[in-house]
Computed example of a mutant assay.
Amino acid sequence: MKVLIAEDDTVTRRILQLGLNRLGHECLPTSDGREAWETFLEDPDIEVVISDRMMPGMDGIELCCRVRRTPRESYTYFIFITALSERDELLEGFEAGADDYLTKPLDQQQLRARLLTASRVTELHGRLYEQKRQLERLNRELWASARQDPLTRLGNRLRLREDLDHLLSNVDRYGHGYCAMLCDIDNFKDYNDYYGHLAGDKVLQRVGDTIASSLRRGDRAYRYGGEEFLITLPEQTLETAATVAERLRKSVENLGIVHEARDGQKLVTISIGLSELNPQSDKSAENMLREADQALYEAKRRGKNCIMVSSVHRL
């Protein structure tokens, strides 16, 4: 282990250093509390601190309190050195956060026993910390998977509801506007009936990947339901969002996925409905989504593979 010594008495410090080296530990000797504190801050690998209680500048109690207040990934085992006459004052040291103590004159067997205990305690804390990290990682993964569509890896309805609340707060607080883009794969039921659901799932995945690759920073995409996808576009007007929508429409068409069950164009395409929510309007997110859905319906009615905005002007 790496052991920091804080001891102003030269003889005691030297005895400790020799004993630690003999036991195979790495030793960092310092001559007072302030030097020990600076060394502790500079070296995150220190596992044990052995400190005299009374030192000039910064005493051992203050050093122990500072060590305990300093967050670290690993636990630091703190041992006080005390004279037999000072044993009644040990309680103050333990209240400050000390784990153990050594008495003067120093004994090699006593030192070895204290360090064996320190090794077990720090190892236990290390295992607990690693378990905590793994648990936190699993919790993050569970949180993310609960908000992700398993097929397309886009956000699901739960994530959409949470993100809409955040976007609405930005509209109210900062005056930010945004657009919604509702996309639907044209004649998808016919594709499923003709090619089978496994092939249909692959189409959903490819369209989802195409949508994900088209997003700017801040944009969010969700599987809205079935073959429908929703994209939120912060800081966009209907005009600029229409440019994004047209680029996405072409990207899906350019995938070249054959759709033999479809009349006319024998490719998989999407239709898109656009709507806008800005600080000047008093409509809700639900109204915005309803307008996007109505625009999408109009795009379907007008021949599919096209874009409509909520004002029902074809683009």
Rank of each mutant, 00 (worst) to 15 (best):
D201R: 01
L154S: 03
L168H: 13
L164Q: 12
L116G: 08
Q131D: 06
Y195N: 10
M181W: 08
Y195R: 15
E141W: 00
R153M: 06
A146W: 00
M181C: 10
L158K: 11
Y191E: 05
G175P: 04
G200N: 09
G208E: 14
E130Y: 01
G177L: 03
M181H: 07
Y195E: 14
R159A: 07
R157E: 13
R127H: 08
Q131V: 01
L198K: 01
L168S: 10
E162G: 09
H197L: 08
T122D: 08
H197C: 11
V121A: 07
R147K: 04
Y174E: 10
R153L: 08
A146L: 07
L182T: 00
Y178M: 10
D172P: 00
K202E: 15
L167F: 09
G155R: 09
C179N: 09
H125F: 12
L124V: 02
L158S: 07
R137F: 01
L135A: 12
A146K: 02
R137S: 08
D172E: 15
R140G: 01
Y194T: 15
R159K: 12
S169P: 02
G175R: 09
K189E: 05
Q148S: 14
D165E: 12
L168E: 15
A199C: 09
A180T: 06
R161L: 09
V207F: 13
L167Q: 10
L158E: 03
T117E: 01
T152Y: 02
F188R: 09
A144G: 00
L142F: 05
L164E: 08
R137C: 01
D201E: 08
T122N: 12
L167G: 04
R120V: 02
R161M: 09
Q148M: 14
N139D: 02
N187F: 15
S119K: 04
R173D: 11
L198D: 00
D165Y: 04
N156P: 03
D172L: 14
R120E: 04
G126D: 07
S145M: 08
C183Y: 03
D201F: 01
N192S: 09
A199F: 07
E141N: 03
T122C: 12
L115Y: 03
R147V: 01
V203Q: 04
Y174W: 13
L116H: 14
V207R: 10
